[in-house]
Design a protein around this nucleic acid. Structure first.
Lengths: 230, 230
DNA sequence: GAACAGTTGTGACTAGTATCACGTTCTTGC
DNA sequence: GCAAGAACGTGATACTAGTCACAACTGTTC
């Protein structure tokens, strides 16, 4: 599991907090499934009766608005849990999830989850904790939306990428272990690609981030945190 | 419980879905507490070790940004559960909750909740369902923020008010059973009061909504749904 | 019913961001 | 290495929504 547990912020929806023994018990007999880059795991509107745990690779959750704008909601790295909301209500999938590199996932069905959780109530508590922290996150950026300048949203997108796909380097430098285009960043931040570009370049000029061959490195995380207005 | 269960959308965070017997078991020995209009139940940042169930009255959850802008997140009517996140993680309260009319609440402590839930795992499942639907809601309007025209956000605010505080009239007309100022609406929608005013007046002119003595009635819900872009 | 505070309506101005347009640089497959 | 397509950088423009200013209206109190 290359994703550091030290990052202040867990990747959205990570079940990493589940104690090892519970975790492995839950996945003991799980079927796994491979997915090639750009293949779709499921689409918004699909029926969903279970969730997935990312074992390797990376995926993104996206929503497409009526006008055809693609908004990226989250990136999932190894250890993240995907599509868990379908376990708890019977609503269709709320987003589309697509592999951004070849990936392998374990499948946990509703039945398996609840059978296991009924036997181990700690699982319920941990899951509730995870949902609560997610909810806290969305509440926070509900507020942030008001302050939402392009720079702060792009900064948030970078921090999120670093949390999901970041590989720590020396100091608190972090490399985003995945090619990411400015369109991707713009889609995560929910801003126009052109404006994301302007901000990114400003930061590159100021050495806040660097880019080599499509890979970004966050050089001065503090500045991003500051710009994000956290 | 004047709030109709027929509304398509449950008031945010309602525990109304809890089967009666469980519900009453959980509240059997709960202490209750009265709160006058404009009194604060708790403030963002407070320690919180339990949650409340609204028995009568109405409350609002608000966040105040650094610049002093007040953003209203939700309105709670009878049956709603408030501050439940504190049950699951140990973070401080994420919002401030204030009574908008004289209210009475039952208090459920962490201990009581977990003791009860361990004995009745259905409670866990229901709670997870509630959290999931909340999360779905916040995720949706995180996206909506992008498409966010003033009109769509104000329309959403009205629909939310109708869901939390609405009293059904004939047809699908709905009366918001509570005096609401345009500042309140603007705070819910996260827009400037002046701009909310312009939209509201357009709708009043088009008979989409009416206002008599501070009380709004939604006359043509379809139009609002449409404006909200749902 | 006069005075006052709170609320609402509306115009003028401004700031921030999406959009458009187009040239430049980088990647990739052959 | 070269050609074609993607991705990127940047200026000009248009539009949306926040802000300011102030008048009109409403309801409440003495």
């Amino acid at each position: 599991m290359p994703i550091s547990g030290k990052s202040g912020q867990q990747p959205t929806g990570s079940l990493a907090a589940l104690p090892k023994d519970l975790w492995s018990g839950l996945l003991a007999n799980a079927a796994t499934q491979g997915l090639d880059r750009l293949q779709t795991l499921f689409s918004a509107g699909d029926e969903g009766r279970g969730c997935y745990v990312v074992q390797s690779g990376a995926l993104k959750a996206v929503l497409v608005s009526a006008e055809g704008h693609e908004r990226m909601l989250a990136v999932f790295g190894p250890g993240a849990i995907v599509g868990e909301m379908a376990l708890f209500d019977d609503q269709p999938r709320s987003a589309t999830v697509i592999a951004i590199r070849d990936s392998r996932l374990a499948y946990v069905s509703k039945d398996v989850f609840f059978r296991f959780a009924d036997a181990h109530p700690e699982v319920y508590r941990h899951t509730l904790r995870i949902m609560a922290s997610r909810l806290r996150g969305t509440t926070e950026d509900a507020l942030a939306q008001n302050v939402a300048t392009v720079a702060s949203r792009v900064a948030k997108a970078f921090l999120q990428l670093a949390a999901s796909l970041g590989e720590p380097l020396d100091g608190d430098r972090r490399r985003i272990g995945q090619k990411v285009t400015q369109s991707d960043i713009a889609a995560m931040a929910g801003v126009a690609r052109e404006n994301a570009s302007r901000v990114v370049n400003r930061w590159i000029r100021n050495k806040v981030i660097t880019r080599t061959g499509g890979y970004y490195v966050i050089e001065r995380r503090m500045v991003l945190l500051d710009e994000a207005g956290v």
